[in-house]
């Protein structure tokens, strides 16, 4: 069997966050700035007061052709991990390896960067520019975005008049038009109509068949994960607690883990209901 190439490798990644006490977060921020001002290298190995590990000892590889599903309860560190992989957050320690000029595009909330008073067409240029595209690159992709989003004449109306589904269509079409090597979708396909979502899923499956392409797909909607992913990672309290190439097995583990606080009987009852729904 042909050995697959990792596009991205995450090794011993740790990240600290200050807890919900905002004043401590600010205090730690001032401390970090002070270290930077004095040129002191400041990599945390110990937690400061009121800090916690939002990511702890994360290790995984993302191979070309992967659609790696990531599930975990709220606050398990999924979004922080995605923001760290996308280079938005800096890791406290550890490393992310990847080929030179690896293009990582992340969509977290679809409407971010859109301007309500500008038309859909103007917003294509605004959002495309945010993803690092030049005007000529956007011009070249305009027909694809128009066609994929299926927004037609609506593209010349102000974005403020769009429904959330229409915004989702536009945002997804722009993001995929950038042709990223690693495409991060963090709960971003939670909105929009099911026909368009089905189109996105079909497109993603085809997309990762191209060389050097992979997707990190974060969602707590297990049916979506089941439908699209070829590998699964389960996160809890900042750690990867389970990895599997058998998506059904991985989702069983995740659901059982989510229901662990229930009594045996309640757990069986809920699990059966979910299994009946198609897992």
């Amino acid at each position: 069997m042909k050995k697959r190439k990792p596009l991205l490798s995450v090794r011993d990644l740790n990240k600290t966050f200050s807890n919900s006490d905002i004043k401590y977060s600010m205090l730690h921020g001032i401390q970090d700035l002070f270290y930077d001002l004095l040129g002191i290298k400041n990599t945390h190995t110990k937690l400061r007061d009121k800090e916690f590990w939002t990511l702890k000892n994360i290790n995984f590889d993302l191979f070309e052709g992967d659609i790696l599903g990531i599930v975990g309860s709220n606050g398990s560190g999924k979004t922080t991990l995605m923001r760290t992989v996308a280079n938005i957050y800096q890791a406290s320690s550890g490393a992310i390896y990847g080929k030179k000029n690896l293009k990582v595009i992340a969509i977290f909330t679809l409407s971010t960067g859109f301007r309500e008073l500008f038309t859909g067409r103007e917003n294509i240029y605004i959002k495309g520019a945010m993803f690092g595209m030049s005007k000529s690159e956007i011009d070249a992709k305009l027909a694809f975005i128009e066609s994929f989003s299926e927004l037609g004449k609506h593209l010349d109306k102000p974005l403020g008049n769009y429904s959330s589904g229409m915004k989702a269509r536009l945002a997804y079409s722009i993001a995929i038009a950038t042709e990223p090597d690693v495409f991060i979708i963090d709960e971003a396909l939670a909105v929009g109509d099911s026909v368009f979502k089905a189109k996105c899923f079909d497109h993603l499956k085809q997309y990762v068949k191209k060389p050097n392409k992979a997707v990190l797909f974060v969602s707590n909607q297990i049916r979506k994960i089941l439908r699209i992913s070829n590998r699964l990672m389960v996160m809890q309290e900042g750690q990867i607690i389970h990895e599997s190439s058998d998506i059904r097995e991985g989702l069983h583990f995740y659901i059982k883990n989510c229901l662990s606080h229930l009594s045996e009987e309640e757990r069986k009852h809920k699990l059966n209901r979910i299994l009946d729904a198609g897992i």
């Binding site: 490798s9 490393a95 595209m133």
Partner: peptide, 25 residues
């Protein structure tokens, strides 16, 4: 596999970034 992805600093990098993201500006 390439080296760890790091954030580069320096004036040359600033000029390159501003040029690469001129359309965003």
């Amino acid at each position: 596999m390439g080296p760890p992805r790091t954030i580069r600093h320096g004036w040359i990098q600033i000029i390159k970034n501003l040029n690469d993201y001129a359309f965003l500006i």
